[in-house]
Write a protein that binds this DNA or RNA. Structure first.
Lengths: 209, 209
DNA sequence: TTGACAAGTGACCGCTCGTTCGCTATAATA
DNA sequence: TATTATAGCGAACGAGCGGTCACTTGTCAA
């Protein structure tokens, strides 16, 4: 009950900031969406900017927890088709989880105004996915699923187009279905280009390593 | 002399809007950067929003002129290395032309607030480059430079990673050199993957079609 | 029961915003 | 030369902003 309101203010701030931007958001409207009056906000935050900073702190902590350690990396796919499936599942989450969507929008529109937002934007939009798939592709090459190549280059070539379609979904949600189909097609094209065993992808059912 | 000031206001608006956003920009500061006082602005525009609309009109007209017709498409490269060279030249312009950079930033930060900005953003960040390279790759396949494949898929796979690095340069200009090197490496990797005549790329000096 | 504290309220403050308006200087037009 | 339109100026306006403060209410410990 104590810092529950504080948390709700942060949630409302994420929503409004991601839609109207920091400058376009006013505190009266923000607190009104929680059934409060603007002066109540100052019981929980010193001022508007402190909301912004707390929001960024939370985002940084969240991503340190989810992407910081190598422990919670996804399992390396056993087949090429499994790579497509895993990709689609990850994209589905990232597109439909509202908080993740709002975070992405927020970083997009505030990246030129705030330095920490800028850093986070690069991590999100570029580095993290790439590093993750660098690890995955390394594993898949060791398993003989992908042809030998620079795994980081492949990860970049794989994740950047997918990222661009995720951004498209943020911008024009009505194109989400189309974008998802494109991602699937692209992923399929990717494994046709870089995968081994093109002839019988779902073959070699079990047994050996 | 008459509408010269009007034009200068639009230039200053592009600069300030792209840095601070529409809401973060105030007219006093904008006009002061031109040595004017804020009330003078109203001799040229009805209000702040009309500046924004005029700016978007200009951008739409510019892109209709530069990308609308098929006439001013670049020539299809004659060799694979030429593709890399052409790419680097295009990227160089798009990264160092300040007006283009500011336009991209503006569309990035205002895409969720204004519908026309949203449409333009998709055109810029996704559609236009892809269509251009679809045409180029079609031509290169016909010339036997690229292996037969879906040219649109290849164009997407080629331009999306490059776009993502262009966005990186907008966000963190100090990484420009690094990004340019990455683009060159990526482009080289691309022609190694999809190009024919891998053994002697610069060979077949002349003569045949 | 009392005291202390946290949380919410509403009135208010100063400031900045976008915008208006009457004025002046300039330069082209008649 | 007289007239008129243009462009810039500076003072002023109302509205809305972020922020402050004295006050009330509810909760819980002493």
């Amino acid at each position: 009950m104590a810092n529950d309101t504080k948390e709700r203010i942060l949630e409302a701030a994420l929503e409004m900031f991601s839609q109207k931007g920091y400058d376009g958001t006013n505190i009266r409207e923000l607190t009104a969406s929680l059934g409060l009056v603007k002066s109540s906000m100052y019981k929980h935050f010193e001022n508007k900017e402190e909301i912004w900073n707390a929001l960024l702190d939370k985002m940084i902590a969240y991503y340190a927890q989810h992407f910081g350690s190598r422990e919670n990396l996804p399992p390396v796919p056993e087949t090429l088709d499994e790579l497509v499936g895993m990709t689609m599942r990850m994209v589905d989450v990232t597109i439909h989880d509202e908080k993740i969507v709002m975070t992405r929008k927020l970083l997009t529109i505030e990246q030129f105004r705030d330095e920490r937002a800028r850093e986070l934007a690069t991590k999100h939009f570029l580095t993290e996915l790439k590093e993750m798939f660098t690890y995955i592709f390394e594993g898949m090459m060791n398993k003989g699923l992908l042809r030998q190549d620079d795994p980081e280059m492949l990860a970049f070539a794989y994740t950047a187009p997918i990222s661009s379609l995720i951004h498209l979904c943020d911008r024009e949600p009505e194109k989400t279905d189309d974008a998802l189909a494109q991602i699937k097609t692209f992923s399929g094209h990717f494994i046709k280009t870089y995968g081994k065993n093109n002839a019988n992808r779902t073959a070699v059912p079990s047994g050996n390593e």
